[in-house]
Simulated scan of single mutants.
Amino acid sequence: MKKMMIAAAAAAVTAGSVQAGGFERSALPLGFMFEKGNYAELSFGSVSPKVSGVLAPMPSVTTGSVLKDYTTFGFAVKTDINEKLSLGLTVDPTFGADVFYPTGTGFPLAGSSAKLRGETIAAVARYKFNENFSVHGGLRSVGIGGDLFLPAAGNYRAKFGNDRDLGYLIGVAYEKPEIALRVALTYASETKHTLNTSIAGVPMTFDVPVKLPQSLTLDAQTGIAADTLLFGSIRWMDWSVTRLDGPLLPPSVNPLVSYDHDTITYNIGIGRKFSDAFSGAISIGYEKHHGGIVGNLGPTDGQKSIQIGGTYTHQNMKITAGVRYVDIGDAIALRGNSRFTGNKAVAVGMKVGFSF
């Protein structure tokens, strides 16, 4: 039962984090560390957000859709050293943003664009004290970098060079296999970066500091009836520490990225085994709408989502696929001069896992 129902739970999260707090695209996956025996997986996600706004004094002036479609790829592998110790490695597209304000709209930021990229490479170990208790932890190498173009600020163009910092994660888990119960708590540390930044037309570079947030994640699942699993998660991220400034930009433009609030994201779902080969799941997600002013490079505030997915298992291979619809929270940006409402995103994801 445990193996089958964990597969069902995975079906409800494979489409990834769509417009979760800040610019997180994927919570570092650790479920692979709880697979039986040696295991490897490849994951793919495609996200199509539709986020647009209007100029508050002139509702006929619209932004057009400002968030671009994107795809993500991930990889994880785990091996058992002995009955108690397992080692794993994962590559995850944790952070990202793709913003472009279409030209020809008359909106003050028309033509502006920004791109951020940040991936995590993590080496993880898990040690089982017995059938019920285990601890896990490891090191995370987190990278971040990007570029920015602001035509309304004198054709300001900046390139933020990629920088990596070493963080860590640590956690504990309790399991009761006979009822498919697993509760895991994982803490991931903050990372600090200094981005070597060049500005077009300026014969020098600048060191720009930025912090990426710490997080605390509680994952849980339990069997509630024959072949039926209840699962969920609560994830806190310390986004209020993250601020990114553009060198030589006036205070009226900076900060480029900042957040007034931390975020807590909730997910809950139910999974069901339909046959020896197929299981499915449905889940809902929620992130609080805080209100206040947000940055134009991330004009969203909170979310609600629903996702369905399924897992097909054949011999040593399992294929998991899911689709998520996200109602993205309304936001006020550009110091109150633009309002983003009626926004949404659709994400599809697939994961292929192999036991060997």
Rank of each mutant, 00 (worst) to 15 (best):
M1Q: 14
K2A: 11
K3L: 14
I6E: 09
A10F: 09
A12T: 13
V13C: 10
A15Q: 03
G16N: 10
V18G: 00
A20W: 08
F23A: 03
A27V: 15
P29G: 09
Y39P: 07
L42D: 00
G45Q: 11
P49M: 09
V51S: 02
A56D: 07
G64R: 05
F73H: 11
V77T: 15
K78E: 08
K78F: 01
E83N: 15
K84A: 15
K84N: 14
S86V: 14
F95G: 00
G96P: 03
A97M: 08
F107A: 02
L109V: 02
A110G: 00
S112N: 09
S113Q: 10
A114E: 09
G118Q: 02
A125Q: 02
Y127R: 02
N130P: 01
S134E: 06
G143C: 07
G145Q: 02
G146S: 02
D147N: 14
G154L: 06
R164W: 15
D165C: 01
D165R: 10
G167K: 08
I170T: 13
E178N: 10
E178H: 08
A180N: 02
V183I: 14
V183G: 08
A188Y: 13
E190N: 14
H193V: 07
H193M: 04
T194P: 05
T197A: 06
V202E: 13
P203S: 13
M204W: 13
F206S: 01
V208M: 11
L212A: 00
L216E: 06
L216W: 02
T222G: 07
A225G: 06
L229S: 06
L229N: 13
W236Y: 13
W239N: 06
V241D: 00
V241G: 00
G246R: 00
P247M: 12
P250A: 11
N254Y: 04
L256N: 03
V257R: 00
S258D: 14
H261N: 13
T263M: 14
I264C: 07
I270D: 01
S279P: 01
I282N: 04
I284W: 15
H289V: 14
H289P: 04
H290C: 05
I293D: 01
L297G: 06
T300W: 14
T300S: 06
G302A: 04
Q303V: 12
K304S: 11
S305K: 01
S305I: 03
G309W: 07
G309C: 07
I319G: 04
G322F: 06
Y325P: 08
D330Q: 12
A333C: 12
T341G: 05
G342Q: 10
A347G: 08
V348F: 12
